[in-house]
Design a protein around this nucleic acid. Structure first.
Length: 504
RNA sequence: GGCCCGUUAGCUCAAUAGGUAGAGCAGCGGACUCUUAAUCCGCGGGUUGAAGGUUCGAGUCCUUCACGGGUCACCA
């Protein structure tokens, strides 16, 4: 058969086949001709790779010989060292690997030669006895092996792994096969989420799921994605936050409630933002935002200890300490102390607003509160490294929060900043239905002036408040960013398995 | 969306000043029964992201486009 005929016959997705791919397809055909099942249905295994390691890696060479342990382990071939009539190779799964020793005098000439039809990347099951090599590595002395799956494409280079960032995101499976650090990051994320659930479950919270598709997207200041329901003939929005639904549940008597789920915001993509991201929101009746700060400190310290066994963790150039108590500083003081602006700049509100306007391309007139928010974001946030609660921001940028009891222009709210990123946002929830309605109407007025991120009026939610929302503290924590902190990653795309990319 | 950078063999990267596109890994053939980036000998592998342009000659210079990374803007 000519190369061209082969290329036509083998219908791989990728149309131009390399020599290496044709060779792999030919080898696979030969396996077929030998009567081997080329797409087997199941494998009878005794251990996964990591189970062999966790159960037996502490046994010495002598102990292994004495115990004579047989295992049947599946894995992907990731490296091969052939020396005539003996071959060493490693099989791997996720982030664990184990060596296999294949000898012609053990498996027989025919089975040994069959190995020539296998390639790096193929998945096999190896049966044999555990032993230690001269250099002490735990190894399976193969007595037999079974073909489980063919890899028709060559894997990336063994030493450097897969470096191309775009390919790592588009073909995450290759990243996971080749780069152990990546597997470790996602394992840590999974454990982190499990620990968060345990933390809240142990404190009597119940986990719920609320609508992702909403008629009025609320609970945050952001632009939504729009979609359409055919049968009902209505516009729907992917949620920007679960907040208003969770508070309806507190009205209904769920006094401690949380949700871990996706939010969608129709905004830019960068190292700290993905259009869909995972958010933890929790609400506890009868507590205020000061008690939420205590709870937040507890949660983060618990996670640091459970995931890393210590109170301080490295993040880039820094060491972040979760030791309590964390710094608390008023929003306005943070701006005065850290923005680098001269004290005289704060004497005149109008000139401050004009200055803030120079920091943003926004053409609309800014309110005083919005101007302060911009100055905080641009000049202050990035300077904060250690966990810091920024408390009492302006009320007008906090339409769902109670006012501070002493300074009514301030909100009973905090934002948690770590490593220059906003990790959490929390407040004493506004429970007064009349005030809530007024705030919504003010937001609606802002929308009239062109602010697309202002909150929409949600009278159904106001009606829920009219039935009585107890005093409640509520908080949202960005799970992706939290995973960044705990896995020491600088880009949100490193902690999201399939970040949004333009289609190829 | 603006600006800067990148795109060369399956992968990781080279290619002085514009002058015949190379190496390592991977692959193929051979030697080799404790190797682990195995080693040794030999061989094949490319529309240099796409399309134009300048030039005797373009991976290299110019223009446009595509995708990605960084940064700024919006935002958590």
């Amino acid at each position: 058969m000519s190369d061209q005929e082969r290329r036509k016959e083998y219908r791989l997705v990728q149309e131009d086949l390399s020599d290496q791919e044709i060779i792999r397809l030919e080898k696979w055909k030969k396996l077929q001709e030998k009567g081997l099942e080329v797409f087997p249905h199941r494998a009878e295994i005794t251990h996964a790779v990591h189970e062999v390691i966790s159960e037996y890696s502490f046994l010495s060479k002598e102990e292994l010989e004495e115990k004579n342990i047989s295992v049947r382990v599946p894995g992907r071939i990731i490296s091969v060292r052939k020396m005539g009539r003996a071959t060493f190779f490693h099989i791997a799964n996720f982030r664990d690997k184990i060596q296999v020793y294949l000898r012609e005098d053990v498996v027989g000439k025919e089975n040994y030669e069959l190995f020539d039809l296998l390639d790096i990347g193929d998945i096999v099951q190896v049966s044999g006895k555990l032993f230690r090599t001269r250099t002490g590595e735990l190894t399976i002395l193969a007595e037999s092996y079974v073909f489980l799956a063919k890899s028709f494409h060559p894997l990336p280079e063994k030493w450097h792994g897969l470096q191309d960032v775009e390919l790592r995101y588009r073909k995450r499976y290759l990243d996971l096969i080749m780069n152990p650090v990546s597997g470790e990051t996602f394992r840590l994320r999974s454990q982190m989420v499990a620990k968060i659930r345990r933390f809240f479950d142990e404190r009597g919270f119940i986990e719920v799921e609320t609508p992702m598709m909403q008629v009025i997207p609320g609970g945050a200041l952001a632009r939504p994605f729009k979609t359409f329901h055919n049968a009902l003939g209505i516009d729907l929005y992917l949620r920007i936050a679960p907040e208003l639904y969770l508070k309806r549940l507190v009205v209904g008597g769920m006094e401690k409630v949380y949700e871990i789920n996706r939010n969608f915001r129709n905004e830019g993509v960068d190292s700290q933002h993905n259009p869909e991201f995972t958010m933890l929101e929790f609400y506890q009746a009868y507590i205020d935002y000061h008690q939420l700060m205590e709870l937040t400190e507890e949660l983060f310290l618990y996670l640091a200890r459970e995931l890393h066994g210590k109170d301080e963790i490295p993040y880039g150039e820094h060491t972040i300490s979760f030791r309590r108590p964390w710094k608390r500083i008023k929003f306005m003081e943070a701006i005065r102390e850290m923005s680098g602006l001269a004290p005289s700049r704060f004497e005149d509100q109008k000139s401050l607003i004009d200055f803030a306007a120079t920091l943003t391309p926004e053409k609309r007139p800014l309110s005083y509160g919005k101007a302060l928010d911009i100055i905080f974001d641009k000049l202050v946030k990035e300077k904060i490294v250690q966990p810091t609660f920024i408390i009492n921001p302006p009320k007008e940028i906090s339409p769902l929060a109670k006012s501070d009891r002493e300074v009514p222009s301030e909100a009973a709210r905090f934002e948690l900043i770590i490593a220059g990123m906003e990790l959490a946002n929390a407040f004493s929830e506004l429970t007064d239905p009349f005030e809530q309605r007024k705030r919504f109407e003010e937001q609606a007025a802002m929308r009239q002036t062109g602010d697309e991120e202002s909150h929409l009026v949600d009278l159904d939610y106001v009606e829920a408040l009219e039935y009585g929302l107890p005093p409640t503290g509520g908080e949202g924590i960005g799970i992706d960013r939290l995973a960044m902190i705990f896995s020491n990653q600088k880009s949100i795309r490193e902690v999201i398995l399939f970040p949004l990319l333009k289609p190829r």
